[in-house]
Simulated scan of single mutants.
Amino acid sequence: MTYKRDESAGYLTNWAGRLFVRAIERRLAGGSAGPMPVFFALADGGTMSQTALARWASVEQPTMANTLNRMERDKLIERTPDPNDRRSALIGLTRLGRQRAGEALASAQDVNALALEGFKPAERDVLFALLHRIARNLDADAQESALPALPVSKPRTSRRS
């Protein structure tokens, strides 16, 4: 059997994903796309635990811990004690983090618009429907094999006052 990467959904989506990341990072003026899942999760001003963020981003705890440590070092997040669990902290964006989140979200929107340039609305609808179907199929497989899966919806966040 010959492997044809131009006929592989996995290869093509991975390649497109890497191109998306590179395009976003070029627009972030030296920034990394690494914190983007945290930015997306907390952009509304809410807070989440490290565990919830890792689950939301579909990454392992050590990966999220490293990302949050770098973000804390760069003054993008702050940790506050969780009033419901003294062993846990809630993570929220700092003022600088909210600014960078806005820049990251704008960059992502720009890159998405670029990627979909020339697509007719019906083509976009079909693309999104097919990508959602792929995600559901792979998520179902992950659930069956007890592998970590991408969450279907964003966990609720608590609002800061």
Rank of each mutant, 00 (worst) to 15 (best):
A108Y: 06
D110R: 14
R27K: 15
T94S: 08
F128W: 04
E7D: 07
T157S: 11
Q99S: 05
E60Q: 15
E78I: 01
G92K: 07
F40W: 12
Q143L: 14
G17M: 11
L114P: 00
S145W: 15
L116E: 06
L42R: 03
W56K: 05
T94G: 03
M64R: 06
P121I: 00
S88K: 04
Y11V: 03
A104V: 01
A140H: 12
R73Y: 09
R70T: 01
P81D: 08
A115K: 02
L150G: 02
R22G: 06
A106S: 15
S32Q: 10
G10K: 07
S8W: 04
A57K: 10
L90A: 05
P151Q: 14
R79F: 11
R79L: 06
A146K: 15
I91E: 02
P81M: 06
R27L: 13
L127S: 13
M64S: 07
L130C: 08
N66I: 00
V59E: 03
G118P: 05
R100W: 07
T13H: 12
N14L: 11
E25Y: 12
Q99H: 13
L93A: 01
A149I: 02
P35Q: 07
T157I: 01
A9M: 04
N69A: 13
E123I: 00
G31V: 01
L90Q: 05
S158F: 01
Q109A: 14
D141C: 08
D139V: 07
L90V: 06
W15R: 10
P151D: 05
E78N: 05
Y3I: 13
R124L: 02
A115S: 09
N69R: 14
N69T: 09
L12T: 14
A16V: 13
V126D: 08
A89Q: 08
T13I: 04
T157R: 09
D125K: 15
E103S: 09
V38E: 04
R160H: 07
R98L: 08
A41R: 03
S107Y: 04
N84M: 03
S8A: 04
L105R: 12
S158D: 02
R5H: 13
P121Q: 00
K75D: 06
G118W: 03
A142E: 02
R160K: 13
E78A: 02
A41H: 07
D141T: 10
S161W: 08
I24P: 00
L90S: 03
R26T: 07
F119K: 07
A52P: 00
H132A: 14
D82M: 07
L138N: 07
A43H: 13
E72S: 05
P35G: 05
R136C: 06
L150W: 13
F40M: 10
A57I: 06
A52I: 01
N14T: 15
F39M: 01
N137I: 05
K75H: 12
I77A: 05
